[in-house]
Amino acid sequence: MIRVLQLEDDPDITEICQMALGMTGGFELLQCATGQEALEKAEAFAPDLLLIDVMLPGMSGPDTLNHLRKLRGFAEIPAIFFTARLQKDEIGKFMAQGAAKVIAKPFDPLTLGDELIEVYNRN
């Protein structure tokens, strides 16, 4: 079981991810709608992977990641950014912030699970 902490504010996308990862199988998923909620629940959940939407109301995805990194044992957890399609240089910017991968929206739900497994195995 790969434990995934997902930060995503759009309930429909949350549900699609849930179903997509359910179909692939082998995931334990905790979904949070805000950065605040993620910070509160992160330590107790002890995730193996972080799946973070960039554009969020309030605290942004990258800001939340910075806070999460300060938690005990979170410094090395691979983080994947979920974002609207971006230009090459913007992807580079997120990678520089310590992202293991950037997945562009719209993503293909059928391959999402495999992409997460690939990142997990790589790290």
């Binding site: 429909d12 996308i13 699609i16 609207a84 929206k105 739900p109």
Partner: peptide, 8 residues
């Protein structure tokens, strides 16, 4: 974002 949900 909504397109992602529809397509997904």
């Amino acid at each position: 974002t909504p397109m992602t949900s529809i397509k997904g």
